[in-house]
Design a protein around this nucleic acid. Sequence first.
DNA 1: AATTCCAGTTCTATTTTGAAACCAGAATCG
DNA 2: CGATTCTGGTTTCAAAATAGAACTGGAATT
Lengths: 150, 150
Amino acid sequence: MVKRVSLWDAGCPVARALDVIGDWWSLLIIRDAFDGVRRFSEFQTGLGIAKGMLATRLRDLTERGILESAPASDGTAYREYVLTAKGRGLFLVMVALRQWGEDHLYRPDEPKSSLVDTETGIPVARLEMRTEDGRPMDWNNTRVKKIEDR
Amino acid sequence: MVKRVSLWDAGCPVARALDVIGDWWSLLIIRDAFDGVRRFSEFQTGLGIAKGMLATRLRDLTERGILESAPASDGTAYREYVLTAKGRGLFLVMVALRQWGEDHLYRPDEPKSSLVDTETGIPVARLEMRTEDGRPMDWNNTRVKKIEDR
DNA sequence: AATTCCAGTTCTATTTTGAAACCAGAATCG
DNA sequence: CGATTCTGGTTTCAAAATAGAACTGGAATT
């Protein structure tokens, strides 16, 4: 069927994640889902995606357990797509992408949106990496440790 | 005539980020770069990517300031590709993807690799989101605030 | 000097995508 | 109620991206 390369079996969690949500549209659909978009037509007009693409993406994301379809909340007989727990788990990925985008992809004079606490309006702090015992950590102090199974 | 869609101008940092690194191969190349891969042939055999694809991806990533090409460190006349500061800024995206992948894409009995401190071997802690004043935060407590500039 | 290695480019066949036309069932209008 | 529009797709087709193989030319190795 799909001749496109997959690195699922390489055993790298990053490769697996990209296998699931690494195509062009998936993360944008998920971003919109985090923003409260639920209906086919909302995704379609909001993203400017072709309907055929959207249909297959929504189906794939649903099959993969990232979205699920539920009866529409407005009482109509239609259905809507909402994030599952697994899908909501991608929020930190979105935040990381957002922070990187804000840092590197805006001219200084360009207006930016920002992510804030709904109640207080206080912005989200930068994500940071620490060891499990709480010490700050830097990318060049890390390595990937293969765990032999069992 | 049919241009591939770009959401750069939507003003969303996530959309911009995906515009730059959102295609199928880029993040995998960047992942390998974080793992110390530098040479064309290393990327190529490591990823199983077609040479033509790799060549255009490396060019694009270089043009976009994520990689830069430098004289080879082994003394030969070849060149190698290394992450710029902007590229290294994607580390948290990788960590977020990795943690999500570990959480949701492995069967319980499957071996996983993990990211640890080079010195101590202590694993990296889970990323978490906090407000700037240090209170933990959840995805459903956030909203995107548009900033009108100037 | 001949051979192999490296980093590509070029070519072609196959997939994927984007856009538009079409469609059936649900909802809305008059 | 019947006619019309809305919703959520599917089908169709051309254009673009991709995988893979063959080819290239300079660098390194023998």
